[in-house]
Every structure is written in C-alpha cells, then in structure tokens.
Amino acid sequence: MATESFSPQTAASTGLGSEQRVRRRLLRMFRTPKGLIGLSLVVLFSLTAILSPLFIQEALSTKINVTARLAPPSPSHPLGTDQLGRELSYRVLLGARTSLMVAVLAVALSIVLGLPLGVLSGYFKGWTDLSLMRLVDTLLSFPVLLLALSISAILGPSVRNATVAIGIAFAPYLSRIVRSETLKVSSLPYIEAARAQGASDLRIITRAILPNILAPVMVQATISVAFAILAEAGLSFLGLGTQPPTPSWGLMIQASRDYLDVAPWTALVPGTAVALSVLGLNMLGDVLRDVLDPTFIFESAGAQ
C-alpha cells in the first residue's frame, strides 16, 4: 500500500505511522492477553463459520426427533436438543455461518455505500459536503435498529433483506467517520504536493487519500461486524431476519423463550455463541484502535 501511494513523510507528526511501525506495534499488541484472546475468538468464530458447513449437512441441523425433545446435554446429545429434538450442537455450529455471512456482507455494503459519500464530502468540502452531510445527519436521527427493522419489515423478512437492511442502516455512521478522516488527511502537505504535481482529483483520492484512511475504516469495520451480529440476532429474534428452519443464533434464542425453566441450555448455547464472537470482535477492535493510535502507551508490563 505504501509503495504506490504518496506516503506521509513524518509519520509521528501526522499520526499515521509507517507500515513497519504499525506491524511492530501489532505484533506487540497481540502478545497482550486482550489481543491474544480477541484474535483467537475471532479466528475460532471465522473457522467455525467457514468449515462447519463443509462437514455438517444442513439436513442434520433441521432433523426433527420427537423422542429426544428438550434433551439435556449428554454424550449422545453434546449440547442438548431443542423443542423439536433438533441437535443444538449442529444448529449452533451452522448458525455461525448465518451470523458471519450476514454481518460481513452487511458491513461490506455499508462500506460500499458510506465510503464514497464520506470521501466526496471530505475531499470536495463546500456545497457537496453540506448537502451530503445533511442527508447523512437526517439518517443518523433514526436509531440504527429501528432503521434496519423498518427496512427489513417493508422489504419482507428474509436473510437477504436483513443483510441489506443492516447494511443501509450502518452506512451513515461509516460515512461520518470516513468524512472526518478524509478532512484530516486532505489538509496534509503531501496532498498539496500531489496537486502541485498535476495529479487529478481521482488520482489523489485513490492514490493518496484512500490508502491513508484505510486503517480507521478497518477498525470501524471490525467493531461494526460485532454490532451487525447483534443486529442480525435482534432482527431474527423478532422474526424479521433469518427465517426458520435455517439455523440462526437469534432464532434459536427466540425459540428457547417458552422453555426457559425446563431447558435453559436451549438459550445458553446460542447466547454463549453470540457472546463469544461479539466479545472477540470487540476486543480485537479495541486492540486495533490502540495500535493505530500513536499516542497510546502499552500498559501491560508483559508487553514491554
């Protein structure tokens, strides 16, 4: 990324950090307990989501077994069964795929929508900025979940529509962050230098601005994926997201509502899955933010 772009000369004063420095800080950060746990949880979650559909057939997770309804965890039912006798272990493993797919695609969509908006208003400023940000601010007046729920309900509940709804609802937040980063970067001397060399707006944006706002966008994306997992679970819980019988953590929690006292594991299994994946992403997001913030000093003695 650095070789082809106009890199800032003085890393420390611009607060952007050279690639090497960031890499060194990153390595150090992942030796702290928080970084290590966060990274492991995210890797575990991603591997589960990618690998489990290869090894577990979808039919196994939807197979109804009336003789083993609400069976507690035991050697024959590792995580117990739900109200229809379906294996929770299969359902929670395959649920990871639904969660990851919806969350990552939704965040990708929010970047596709929000990035150009933010870059254009931060780079061109003036009227472009004023009118675009008025629109963004108006959208920000709608609580994210309300926006996502309404879009999903009006489009008709399905996995695809939930993804689109979450993606659209997240876009204004992303464009706000992109705009402020673009404003910061485009006031730096090397942008002026690029302009003096006769570079076109398009070239400046793609070669000089985009590579240098990538880091904060990545941090925001990581945290957004965590929030998107929660949003998907919330939408499915209300019946406005993933539809049965597709395994989804939100749906599993919803189904467990009526069997809480007799079979608490039906809620605990998907609840723990949500918690671990979101926890991992949040921890990773925290660590990435600390790495990219050059004023941050490592607290843990073990990392020195």
Binding site: A233, G250, I253, L260, A267, V274, A275, N282, M283
Partner: peptide, 23 residues
Amino acid sequence: ALLGISLPDFFWGMVLILLFSRW
C-alpha cells in the same frame, strides 16, 4: 463492561425473567 456490550439485550432480558420472575 465488555460482557455488557457483547450480549444482546434480549438475552439479558431472558436471563432476568428466568432469575427474578420464574425462580
């Protein structure tokens, strides 16, 4: 704090119902 932001509110709601209402 980390645990609080990592679990969906409806899950906490169900835990609360189980704990304070049912049990």
